[in-house]
Design a protein around this nucleic acid. Structure first.
Length: 259
DNA sequence: ATGCCAATTAAGAATTGA
């Protein structure tokens, strides 16, 4: 069972790379973020023709999340409980059935939060609080669960090319990192950190200032695994080559393989 | 310190992103 997450930065702009990705890597489940379109504009036919079931929560212009699955989608929820999302489509969750088992998967697009001295940062922290509450509830189900997506948080200094340059950024502020740790401390494993301590493993490179060419990246796309999922973890792969493709997203996909 | 680039909306430039 291979689960991937990818911030596509507009699913319509990224349709060709998306279909190529599905064909070449054949994920069992793919979580997408930043669709940047309403459901009616989502390329449903193309994705279904590629062999995927799809559920999504779209929104005009901004945000938007989806779950694509080769396997049946049994149940789903849109939005976090007890959270006023202010019209922003950032959370969708589904149960995927496969080989007689089940896997719960969430596709998450956490707020950026910049500039940090504005209500945008308050919203980021409020979202993380609501996500943490819900993640705690999900743990009580004692299921294999994967909380995947763009968390917009750099967990540790080893996850950013130049920690000092990001010190006052909403993605790397102590309160942001603390919110991420709080989520892990519930009992979730950061899939990448379960398999390696290596520094410099990034999932995002800015379009600007030659960030990709200079490898000035950050790690902000994460797969969080419940204990039942973490016990099945066999490997993690960041698909770095996607960033060098034609019309790339500024994010690349990351896979977790579960046995 | 700021822009650098990309996408959206909508018809030029503003907003958002990270």
């Amino acid at each position: 069972m291979r689960i991937a997450t990818w911030n596509v930065n507009s699913v319509r702009q990224r349709l060709t790379p998306l279909l190529a990705f599905l064909k070449e890597t054949a994920p069992d489940v793919l979580c997408l973020q930043e669709l940047k379109c309403e459901e009616s504009a989502f390329p449903r036919m193309e994705v279904e023709d590629a062999g995927y079931n799809v559920i999504l929560h779209g929104q005009k212009t901004f945000n938007g999340v989806a779950i694509l699955s080769k396997h049946p989608i049994e149940e789903s929820r849109i939005g976090l409980p007890d959270f006023d999302h202010e019209g922003q489509s950032r959370y969708i969750e589904a149960v995927i059935s496969h080989d007689g088992g089940a896997l719960r998967v969430a596709s998450i697009y956490a707020p950026n939060g910049n500039p940090a001295d504005t209500p945008k940062y308050d919203y980021k922290l409020a979202f993380m609080e609501a996500l943490t509450r819900h993640a705690a509830t999900l743990l009580q189900l004692e299921e294999a669960t994967v909380l995947a997506g763009d968390y917009n948080i750099i967990p540790e200094p080893c996850d950013v090319h130049d920690p000092a340059a990001w010190a006052s950024d909403a993605l790397f502020l102590p309160q942001s990192r603390k919110a991420y740790r709080r989520l892990l401390n519930l009992g979730y494993a950061d899939a990448l950190r379960a398999v390696t301590d290596d520094a410099g493993l990034y999932t995002f490179w800015d379009y600007q200032a030659g960030a990709w060419q200079k490898n000035k990246g950050i790690r902000i796309d994460h797969l969080l695994l419940s204990p039942q999922a973490a016990d099945r973890l066999e490997g993690v792969e960041i698909v770095k080559a996607m960033r060098a493709g034609e019309k790339p997203s500024d994010h690349v996909a990351i896979f977790a393989q579960l046995g």
